[in-house]
């Protein structure tokens, strides 16, 4: 069973059960500039869902999303296969908001870039509740701080 490694602030690291909605990859840099404001990003995801580029609801399979100072890792529940690995230094921002479908589910949008910062990608996951989404944001924010302080 996946043991949650607690949340000692010095080394923030935690695992969460989420579902994968979909992703929009390799957006050109000028496109990514229009996606800086949270509401622009949300509207972009909405539009992608309307256009069928992103589903409205995720697949049934639950996944384990791990957040640590190394970044975000998404693996199958039995942790046998890793689906996504987002290194912390390539994560631009993370956004969480109610999906508006009335079931209290929260969407998590992760904006990542490539090493040359020419393109960006949007990864969308669904959390079971806003509390879960908030704690994911907290651990990620702690991870950024942890890396920032260690760089000084």
């Amino acid at each position: 069973s996946t043991k949650s490694s607690g949340n000692s602030t010095s080394d923030a690291c935690a695992e969460f059960r989420v579902k994968y909605v979909g992703s929009i990859e390799k957006l050109q840099f000028d496109m990514s500039k229009t996606l800086q404001e949270p509401l622009d990003l949300i509207n972009y995801i909405d539009a992608a869902q309307q256009d069928g580029k992103l589903p409205f609801v995720p697949g049934d399979e639950e996944m384990v999303l791990g957040v640590s100072k190394y970044g975000v890792k998404v693996a199958s529940v039995d942790q046998c296969d890793v689906l996504h690995r987002h290194p912390l230094y390539l994560i631009v921002r993370m956004l969480c908001y109610d999906d508006g479908l009335g079931a209290g589910k929260n969407l998590l949008a992760l904006k990542t870039t490539d090493t040359r910062q020419q393109e960006c990608s949007i990864w969308v996951y669904q959390c079971s509740s806003s509390e879960q989404a908030q704690s994911i944001c907290k651990v990620l924010s702690a991870s950024f701080d942890c890396v920032l302080t260690s760089e000084k």
């Binding site: 800086q36 909405d46 999906d99 479908l101 908030q134 944001c137 950024f144």
Partner: peptide
């Protein structure tokens, strides 16, 4: 679709990008 509170976490490395 009505969007309630939005929480954002920005990587300090990309502040303003």
């Amino acid at each position: 679709i009505y969007k309630s509170a939005v929480t954002t976490v920005v990587n300090p490395k990309y502040e303003g990008k």
